[in-house]
Simulated scan of single mutants.
Amino acid sequence: MPFRCGVKDHKFHITQHFSYYIGRHSWNNSTLKLNYAISRNHTISYIKFSDVRLALRSAFAVWSSAIPVKFKETRDYEHANITIGFFYGDHGDGSPFEDNVIAHAIIGPGKGMIRFNLALTFAVDFSSEESDMAFDLETVAVHEIGHVLGLGHSSYPEAVMWPYSSPRTTNVELTSDDAYGAQILYDSNPDFDIDSLKPLNSASKSFGLKEIITISVSLVVAAVSNGFRYYEFLC
């Protein structure tokens, strides 16, 4: 059974290799400061909460380096723009976790949610985590934050928005595909350093913002064996 992101790809509008939810869902451009809250009731027992916070803070910083959106942690879980938690199976959001789903993101008007599959093992430091099936928490968080910002999946395997992930791997550096996709929605961070982007391999086409052409087709991603999937849906 292939493991990948369980998102229904036909719900996305693709632009070059990155994609958007139909309607190009994004936060109001006047709302450039978003609060996020991590559930203290639905968290991981084997990772210090302080380490979970640091991993998520780093994940949000990855995106704010490219776009003029600032993220700030708050303890007000009920009123936070983005809520984050770790859950088992059927956790009440209408999309029960399957064993091969790492996480999912839910986005809607004025609200975003990120849910990690507590049945899996996460890590913030592979040197201290012995499990061969552990997933890097920051890597998964970077991917899901991209969805909360309005991005769909990329067909570039190097992109953080590629829908597959494998245990004991990290991918927290934006490619041009990730950055340009987000910048079309939110503009560019004035301090953005294009040289900080992870280069695409020689088989991938590099393109600039002015070269991007919208293509009205559905994104179809071939199944990849032995890869876990993310899962996202638009509410």
Results as ranks from 00 to 15, higher is better:
Thr83Ile: 09
Gly150Leu: 00
Thr83Phe: 03
Ser188Pro: 04
Ile184Met: 13
Tyr180Ile: 15
Glu98Lys: 15
Tyr164Trp: 13
Asp177Pro: 01
Val172Ala: 12
Ala179Pro: 08
Ser131Phe: 02
Ile106Met: 10
Tyr164Pro: 02
Pro190Tyr: 01
Asn117Val: 14
Leu200Met: 12
Gly89Gln: 12
His147Arg: 02
Leu149Val: 05
Gly85Val: 11
Tyr77Ala: 02
Gly94Pro: 08
Ala182Met: 06
His79Glu: 12
Gly92Asp: 03
Thr170Pro: 06
Pro199Phe: 08
Ser196Glu: 07
His143Phe: 09
Lys111Leu: 03
Pro163Phe: 00
Glu138Trp: 01
Thr121Glu: 09
Pro109His: 08
Val172Asp: 12
Ser95Ala: 11
Pro167Glu: 01
Phe122Ser: 04
Leu149Lys: 08
Ala105Cys: 09
Gly112Asn: 05
Val172Pro: 01
Glu78Ala: 15
Ser131Thr: 12
Phe87Leu: 07
Arg115Glu: 10
Gln183Pro: 08
Glu173Asp: 15
Ser154Asn: 07
Ser95Trp: 12
Tyr88Cys: 03
Val142Gly: 06
Leu118Phe: 09
Asn100Val: 12
Leu185Phe: 09
Ser196Ile: 00
His153Cys: 05
Asp93Ile: 11
Phe86Thr: 04
Asp76Trp: 06
Ile106Trp: 04
Pro167Ala: 11
Gly146Arg: 00
Ile145Leu: 10
Ala103Asp: 01
Ala179Tyr: 01
Ser176Lys: 08
Ala179Gln: 05
Ile114Glu: 00
Phe135Lys: 14
Thr121Ser: 11
Asn189Pro: 07
Thr83Gln: 14
Ile114Leu: 02
Thr121Leu: 12
Trp162Gly: 02
Ala103Met: 06
